[in-house]
């Protein structure tokens, strides 16, 4: 994995609501390098999800810029649809398309957006499904799957677009406890293959084991950034100490 290649550069990112009375993000600067697994943790309402969703402009920032692959995607002329194709996103509530089979869920975007043939798209989809252990469910509908299976399909759906970075928005928060493991395993596998990942999660075990960098957010800013070992054994800010004492 080639490091030191900055994939995403965020500068002065702000997101304000209601004429600046609510500051969800209040000035964030950060760099995400290729192959990094950045895990964002923090109390609810701290702006974790808003930050993640800003990265592919599902939230439109009030101020600041995001440079992805050397291109400022917050510029008015940027073609955000093109850039989103390279940023896979996984949601808390899966958001699979309920009216389509799993295979159709996986092949829709590659066929319509990447111009792949049906055979090509299906081959890739089946291959990836096989890898997450769902090779036999290609013709099922999302309603017939368990939560953990749905989330694995959602990850595969994003991967089918061959993204350069994967964004995870609390991917295990809506799952039964016994299904969390199967989803985290897929994410671990992805990380070990060198995928650049930004993960918002409450799974501290995962953060510690897989993360290359931990970001602790509170009040719409990055309070603390460190390697997992340093962060968990020796948190610097009082807010992080307090948070860790509650969740660990």
């Amino acid at each position: 994995m080639s490091d030191n290649n900055v994939l995403i550069k965020v500068s002065g990112l702000k997101k304000h609501y209601n004429k600046s009375s609510v500051k969800a993000l209040d000035g964030i600067d950060c760099e995400i390098k290729e192959g990094e697994v950045v895990v964002i943790i923090g109390p609810s309402g701290s702006g974790k999800s808003t930050f993640l969703r800003s990265l592919n402009l599902l939230e439109i920032p009030t101020e600041g810029s995001i440079v992805f692959d050397g291109i400022d995607i917050t510029a008015p002329k940027a073609n955000i649809n093109k850039h989103r194709q390279k940023m896979g996103m996984v949601f808390q509530h899966f958001n699979l398309f309920p009216n389509m089979t799993i295979l159709k869920n996986l092949t829709l975007a590659p066929m319509k957006l990447l111009g792949k043939s049906k055979e090509e798209a299906e081959k890739k989809a089946r291959e990836l499904l096989e890898r997450v252990g769902l090779g036999d469910r290609a013709d099922a509908y999302p309603g017939q799957l368990s939560g953990g299976q749905k989330q694995r399909v959602a990850i595969v759906r994003a991967l089918c677009m061959e993204p350069e970075v994967m964004l995870f928005d609390e991917p295990t928060s809506a799952l039964d406890p016994e299904m969390v493991g199967e989803v985290l395993d897929v994410m671990k596998q992805l990380a070990s293959e060198g995928m650049t990942m930004v993960v918002v999660t409450h799974e501290m075990g995962f953060a510690r084991e897989v993360g290359t960098r931990i970001v602790f957010m509170d009040g719409g800013v990055f309070v603390e950034e460190n390697t997992p070992d340093e962060f968990f054994s020796n948190p610097q800010s009082p807010r992080a100490v307090d948070f860790l004492s509650k969740v660990l």
């Binding site: 592919n56 599902l58 649809n81 093109k82 989103r84 194709q85 940023m87 896979g88 996103m89 949601f91 509530h93 958001n95 699979l96 398309f97 829709l108 975007a109 319509k112 957006l113 759906r157 994003a158 677009m161």
Partner: peptide, 13 residues
């Protein structure tokens, strides 16, 4: 559900 819309947009549609 708004999530359907976001899922579509996040794929690049």
């Amino acid at each position: 559900d708004g999530g359907q819309f976001e899922a579509g947009r996040s794929l690049g549609f």
